[in-house]
């Protein structure tokens, strides 16, 4: 039982980590909680569903196409809602509530189009998984783990090595100074939304290969992503990865003795404990506490 729970924790954690780094990439440049991130994840899964099941596209092509669509959706949300708010110098809470509005609107739009029932992408027969140190892992779970790790590595390389990544780090550290040296902040914000949303979409597509999809799936995923980013240290990409795996493991080990319905409860208890005791998370810097 224990090895299986640890394995489930790692797989859930890898999805949380991908959502969390997407959230973090956006948070670093705009410094507010982009709640609509969760609905981008949901829409990513529904894009994949539409392409694969309704339009009979190839699996790999659908994966990449859905990611591109998710990125475009992220940019569209930024242009239509956040950009006007930035022009007004709106406060963080106004951004947060507006993003909530976007979340509610889009989630119910999906429900209107596809219905509230669960849908499934899985086409072939369910195969038995591989036995691995007393746990069972399926091919799809291996795929999820591998793709998530590849995405994390790619993002890390992009942020560290490319010029655009460097500009993103500059804006994250000091937007005014970055503007002074000629970095266009709007362009960086757009890039962050594209990359962050692409990651959310990718996580949504990956999970849709494994489980059923439904319009409300983004809510819980978003919360896990945010919690993972905060306990990892808000604004830190390695922190988001660490937080994601920590949360996945904590949740799955937590339900060892109690029923699985308590997962959300465990996640939020961890968050509140962190907010009270160590609000800067695992890898954040202590000075962040002042802003909290």
């Amino acid at each position: 039982m224990l090895p299986q729970l640890i394995l489930n924790g790692i797989i859930a954690g890898s999805i949380y980590a991908v959502i969390a780094i997407g959230f973090t990439v956006i948070y670093r440049t705009v410094k507010f909680f982009h709640f609509a991130h969760g609905v981008v994840y949901t829409i990513g899964a529904y894009f994949a569903y539409t392409l694969i099941i309704s339009l009979h596209f190839n699996l790999i092509l659908s994966f990449f196409l859905s990611i591109v669509l998710a990125a475009l959706l992220g940019i569209a949300i930024d242009r239509s809602v956040y950009y006007p708010l930035r022009q007004q110098n709106a406060s963080n809470l106004i951004f947060l509530l507006a993003s909530f509005g976007v979340f509610i609107f889009l989630q119910n739009l999906i429900q209107l189009i596809y219905g509230a029932q669960i849908l499934t992408i899985r086409t072939g027969p369910i195969k038995e998984g591989h036995h691995f140190y007393g746990a069972v892992i399926t091919d799809i779970q291996i795929l999820i783990l591998v793709v998530s790790i590849i995405l994390m590595i790619f993002l890390w390389l992009f942020i560290q090595k490319t010029k655009l990544g460097k500009a993103m780090r500059a804006v994250a550290d000091d937007p005014v100074a970055a503007n002074v040296v000629g970095i266009n902040p709007e362009r960086i914000i757009r890039t962050s939304f594209a990359i962050g949303s692409a990651l959310a979409g990718a996580a949504g597509i990956l999970i849709s290969f494994e489980t059923n999809i439904e319009p409300t799936m983004g809510f819980s995923a978003l919360l896990k992503g945010i919690i993972a980013s905060i306990i990892g240290g808000i604004g830190s990409i390695p922190g988001a990865v660490l937080g994601g795996f920590f949360l996945g493991l904590a949740e799955n080990l937590g339900i060892w003795k109690i029923s699985a319905g308590w997962k959300d409860c465990i996640a939020f208890l961890i968050l509140i404990i962190f907010l009270l005791i160590r609000p800067w998370g695992f890898l954040g810097t202590k000075t962040e506490k002042e802003t909290i």
């Binding site: 708010l85 106004i94 507006a98 509005g101 976007v102 509610i104 609107f105 989630q107 119910n108």
Partner: peptide
């Protein structure tokens, strides 16, 4: 719900 969501965005 969509009206509520939209209203929240418009209000903000």
């Amino acid at each position: 719900q969509m009206i509520y969501g939209l209203l929240l965005v418009v209000l903000m």
